[in-house]
Simulated assay, not measured.
Amino acid sequence: MSFACVKRKDNFKTVEQFHFKLDFLILSFFITTNANPLRFLHFLTIFSLISSFHSSFSSSSSSSSSSSPSIHDLLVSRGLPKGLLPKEVKSYTLSDNGTLQVFLDEPCLTKYENRVFFNTVVTANLSYDSLIGVVGLSQEELFLWLPVKDIIVDSPKLGLILFDIAVAYKQLSLSLFEEPPHCKPQGTSMALIKLIPTIMFSLV
């Protein structure tokens, strides 16, 4: 009851202000009810320990969540457009050697200039201005699905980005990648069909 009243009447800007107010209310309660001082001291010690633990946990959670940028912010920090990867990216990992793994819930299809297919896992070596050795990304060219091997910001001043699609290099406008696109889910069978050219080219 006291907590509801405090929450309704006061706007606490920090956790410490709230704990101070709550401590004051507890102290007032024990004084007015003539409670045993030893019991009060024991209770207050336990309460303080719980409060300290809660504050430390909240701080560590906040710092850990803020320390990992989104995949799109990561791309921008490495000189790449954030629209290279779709909004549907679930998570990613980045190792010390630069290996980037991007995870989606399921294979999906989107479009830049042509249609592009993302597998459930997309892997590449991330360096400044480039994604090298891409696996899990294909682009449609003349009704064929060709694997995208490398993506390089070729001429940032000219607003161009280079796609290595195994049989050729293709320059695209960076304006196509200004925002992360929506990616339409694809079935497993369709995903396997689109991956066949990727497997063939990897064996060459």
Rank of each mutant, 00 (worst) to 15 (best):
L146S: 01
F143M: 08
P147A: 03
S155P: 04
D150C: 03
H182F: 14
L158M: 11
V167A: 05
Q186L: 15
A168S: 13
M190W: 04
T188R: 07
I151T: 00
D164R: 06
I161Q: 00
L158V: 14
L142G: 04
Y169E: 10
S155Y: 12
I165A: 08
Q171G: 03
L158G: 09
E179L: 15
S175G: 03
W145Q: 01
F177Q: 00
E178F: 13
W145M: 05
A166R: 15
L158W: 03
T188S: 10
V153A: 04
M190R: 07
Q186T: 05
L142M: 11
W145E: 01
E141N: 14
K149E: 09
P185T: 14
Y169G: 11
V148W: 01
L146N: 02
P147I: 12
I165L: 09
D154L: 08
K184N: 02
K157F: 07
I165S: 04
Q186A: 11
L192W: 09
F143A: 14
E141C: 15
L174S: 00
L192C: 09
Q186G: 02
F163N: 00
P181F: 01
E178M: 10
L142D: 13
D164F: 02
L176T: 06
D154P: 11
D150Y: 05
S189E: 13
M190Y: 05
L172W: 06
D150F: 07
P180E: 00
C183L: 05
D154R: 11
Q139I: 11
V153W: 03
E178K: 15
L144R: 12
D154C: 10
V167I: 15
L144G: 05
F143T: 13
